[in-house]
Amino acid sequence: MANFTLEDVKALRENLGTGMVDTKNALVEADGDMDKAIEILRLKGAKGNAKRADRSTSEGLVAAKELGTTAYMIELACETDFVAKGGKFVALADKVLDAIAAAGATTVDEGLAATSGTQTVADLIDGEAAIIGEKFELRRVSAVNGELFSIYLHKTSKDLPPQVGVVLGYSGDDAETARSIAQHISFANPEYLAASDVPADLVETERKIVTEISKNEGKPEAALPKIVEGRVKAYLKQVALLEQDYAKDNKVSVSKVLADAKLTVSGFARFKVGA
């Protein structure tokens, strides 16, 4: 007769987030030894990690925190929304974020190499994935420098953790407007701060594309330069934050709103789960 009770099974399940059958079988194999059962479950999950390598991780969450003059944000991905909203996954994200911030990591590779307790973040993620039985992935890491920060985390569904995250680094005294700009970024999804930050090769590629489109539309040859530049300007307005129309009042630009509030943006990052 196995040397464990239903309460032991329940306690182990709550500790690891494992299924009822797997948990019970592990305790049977371990003859009720909780530590040995945990080891069995971890080894079983680790063997399944390789099988899960090609699975899609389209769910997950974003998390962010500031530490000194830098704010960090991560996207931690998983396979299902059921796991994404679970306490174990949310707690894992907090541990990963804390380790990354403490290490000053700015890339995924640096983040995975950061230490959390006695192990690396990569090992921490793999271990938790093995226990829960899904593929986990640290998909993105950002580090934004600034004097002050506005962190905006948006839930696209009330029963899920944040799916969209924005970190805005800025200087100035108007925190309310800074938060409004962070919310604008979450909606408008700019890729660059200023038009001058857009790589020249991308601008040139866009110019070639709109030139070809304009010619195919039969636009007059003499009017082409003006039309093309207008369309390139529209492209820059789409991808550069300072050029965008302000989401709360499209009659003014973001740069005008910032100037009126005496705010200067040092940088920003925006993540959306799965995007």
Rank of each mutant, 00 (worst) to 15 (best):
V252F: 05
D81G: 05
V83P: 06
R207V: 06
E204F: 07
G87Q: 14
A182L: 09
N189V: 10
L76N: 11
F136D: 07
V257E: 12
G117M: 06
K47Q: 03
K95T: 14
R55W: 05
Q238Y: 00
K85C: 04
E212Y: 00
D94Y: 07
K36A: 14
S56T: 14
V228Q: 01
A222Y: 00
A261R: 06
T118H: 07
E59Y: 02
G146P: 01
D173S: 15
A194N: 15
C78R: 13
S56E: 15
I151G: 10
K24I: 02
L16C: 11
V265Y: 02
V83G: 11
Q119L: 13
P161H: 14
L168R: 10
K24T: 05
K88H: 15
G169F: 12
A175Y: 05
N15C: 00
R207N: 08
Y235E: 09
Y152R: 05
T80C: 11
S255A: 15
A91G: 13
V144E: 07
L236G: 10
N189C: 11
K256N: 08
K85G: 07
A101Y: 07
K44T: 01
L16Y: 04
A113D: 08
G45W: 06
D260R: 07
G267E: 09
G45Q: 04
V198P: 04
L258A: 14
V257S: 11
A223I: 09
A30W: 05
T264F: 08
T5I: 03
L236A: 08
K226A: 14
S142R: 02
L41G: 12
D33R: 01
T118S: 15
I151D: 11
D35G: 12
A103C: 14
A93L: 02
K262Y: 08
Y170L: 15
K10V: 04
F136N: 09
L138Q: 10
T107F: 13
V9Y: 03
T156E: 15
L6R: 02
K155T: 12
G68K: 03
N3D: 08
N3T: 05
N49D: 00
G117E: 06
T107C: 12
E75N: 07
K10Y: 02
K10P: 00
K233Y: 00
E191D: 10
G146W: 09
A63H: 03
P162C: 07
K226W: 10
A64N: 08
E147N: 07
V257M: 10
I125M: 12
A182R: 10
A247E: 13
Y246M: 07
D197S: 11
D94M: 11
A105D: 14
I181D: 02
A114M: 09
V198K: 05
E7N: 15
K272V: 13
A102H: 03
V96I: 08
K51F: 00
A2D: 04
G111Y: 06
Q244N: 10
V252G: 05
Y192R: 04
T57G: 03
G68W: 01
F4K: 01
L16R: 01
K51R: 15
G32P: 05
V203I: 15
I100H: 06
A63D: 13
V96K: 12
S255V: 08
K44V: 02
L202F: 08
I38F: 03
L97M: 10
V210Q: 08
M1D: 01
K155Y: 07
